Simulated scan of single mutants.
Amino acid sequence: MITVHSQESFHKLDLFQIVRYGDRMPIDSALREQLRTVGLRVTAPRLAALEVLAESPHSTADFVASRVREQLGGVSTQAVYDTLRVCAEKGLLRRIEPAGSAVRYETRTGDNHHHLVCRDCGDIRDIDCVVGGAPCLTPDDDHGFVVDEAEVTFWGRCPRCVATHPSKPSAQ
């Protein structure tokens, strides 16, 4: 979370909220503040990776690395992987692993949202919490665990894939 200053008040927002809800603070300034808030140095690769993910959520590390190199030139894939790892560890990014897919990263953190994945093209969309507050679902037996998060993935076919191949069955 970062503190975003407006003329009227202070707002605590995550990067997803800054991108989604507008220009309370320029994105570059918000990213810099967010990195500093979690104790990370502001570096060009970190800024570039967070910008890529703000524009293209649910991206793979390879996609992020490719886009960062387009912006900055000679940044190694390992440097981008390290950036993604440390940003996820600090809570700036969320790492998701849909079955059969590469690890993906997103900037929407801290709200225990879920995902809808197209079986055909792999498109991923955010789904808000299923029912009530986090963790959204209550297991029938928690086995003594203190549950603080639930991860739900809905699978189906996106409208584009259904339109392209309407007779293809939706379940595999």
Rank of each mutant, 00 (worst) to 15 (best):
I2S: 10
S6C: 08
Q7S: 11
E8I: 04
S9N: 12
F10A: 09
H11V: 02
D14S: 08
L15K: 02
L15Q: 00
Q17I: 01
R20M: 07
Y21A: 11
R24T: 06
I27D: 00
D28V: 09
A30D: 05
R41C: 01
T43D: 11
E51F: 05
L53M: 04
A54L: 11
H58E: 00
V68Y: 02
Y81M: 00
D82E: 03
V86Y: 02
A88S: 15
L93Q: 05
R94I: 08
R95V: 13
I96V: 12
E97P: 03
S101G: 05
R108S: 07
D111Y: 05
V117E: 04
C118R: 00
R119D: 15
C121F: 08
R125V: 11
V131L: 15
T138H: 06
T138V: 10
D141V: 09
H143E: 15
G144N: 15
D148E: 13
D148I: 09
V152G: 01
V152D: 01
V152M: 06
C158D: 13
P159F: 07
R160G: 07
C161S: 10
C161G: 12
T164V: 07
H165D: 15
S167F: 08
K168P: 02
S170A: 14
A171Y: 14
Q172S: 14
